[in-house]
Simulated assay, not measured.
Amino acid sequence: MNWTEQLLLFLISLVANAFSAFAGGGAGLLQFPALIFLGLPFGVALATHKVASVALGVGATLRHVRERSLEWKFSLFILATGLPGVVLGAAFILDVPDWIARIALGFLTIGLGVYSYLNKALGLEHAPIHRTRRGYVLGGFVLFMVGVLNGSLTSGSGLFCTLWLVRWFGLDYRRAVAYTLVLVGLFWNGTGAITLGMLGEIRWSWLPALLLGSLLGGYLGAHWSIVKGNRWIKRVFEAVTILVGLKLIV
């Protein structure tokens, strides 16, 4: 790639990951289509995007760790239930036509934003619930399915995780976004990147600009989410879910 294309990649990555870190998902809304538009085949673009997304988790982690808003036992639960799904989804996606799943997921993702908008108080207060054995079993199963989406698709999985943590476990948006960015962005995406890298191809020469944009965007977005608070995060989450859903459909 020439310097102009590298600069374009950096700017796209910076903007996409800043919004993703603020809303709790959706980096693939801009970044993944840009890789295809610039000439990468689907499988190569997916693997390259996953590697770059790990830097989003790193940047967000650097900011959120300072707030100490993560419970380590709950973090381990999210990792234990989601990571097997990530490996399963990444292992099968390269051989499976997914346009039907994308359209269905697009409508479902739009539904997330509409649901959040209609529930005005959702995610504005931190009130943990469903911390029982039954609650963890059902919550963990859904996180496993979200992990499958994370490993197999490019957009929306982080948004699903954010809203599920808010709706089922009673987190406010700020805490839910922190868990999503640190655990999904860093560990789930890292596992998906390793799996896709082993089974497919990564375009390493494109990564410097993508990694730098993801790292800076992740830090900036995480900082804004902490400063602005739950009501702003809720609104941006609703906007990003609708845009991601439309992107998946169109």
Rank of each mutant, 00 (worst) to 15 (best):
E5F: 05
E5D: 11
E5M: 14
F10P: 03
S13N: 08
V15G: 11
A16N: 07
A18F: 08
F19V: 15
F22N: 03
F22A: 12
G24K: 09
L30W: 03
F32L: 09
F32K: 08
A45I: 12
A45V: 09
L46C: 02
H49V: 02
V51E: 00
V54D: 01
A55L: 12
L56V: 13
G59Y: 12
G59C: 11
T61E: 05
L62N: 01
H64V: 04
V65L: 15
R66K: 15
R68G: 06
S69K: 10
W72A: 12
K73M: 03
F74G: 08
S75M: 11
L76M: 14
G82F: 02
P84W: 05
P84A: 11
G89K: 08
A90L: 08
A90E: 07
A90V: 12
I93Y: 03
P97K: 07
W99C: 00
A101D: 00
R102T: 09
A104M: 13
G106W: 05
F107K: 04
I110L: 14
Y115S: 11
L118E: 10
K120D: 06
H126C: 04
H130Q: 14
Y136G: 00
V137K: 09
F141T: 13
L143R: 04
N150Y: 00
L153K: 05
T154G: 13
G156W: 03
G158D: 04
L163K: 04
L163P: 01
V166G: 08
G170Y: 05
R174V: 14
R174C: 05
V177A: 11
Y179A: 09
V182I: 15
L183R: 09
V184P: 01
L196Y: 06
I202V: 15
I202M: 07
W204Y: 15
W204R: 10
G213H: 07
G218T: 04
L220S: 11
A222R: 02
W224V: 14
I226L: 15
I226W: 10
K228T: 10
W232E: 13
F237T: 05
F237V: 05
A239K: 04
I242L: 14
I249C: 13
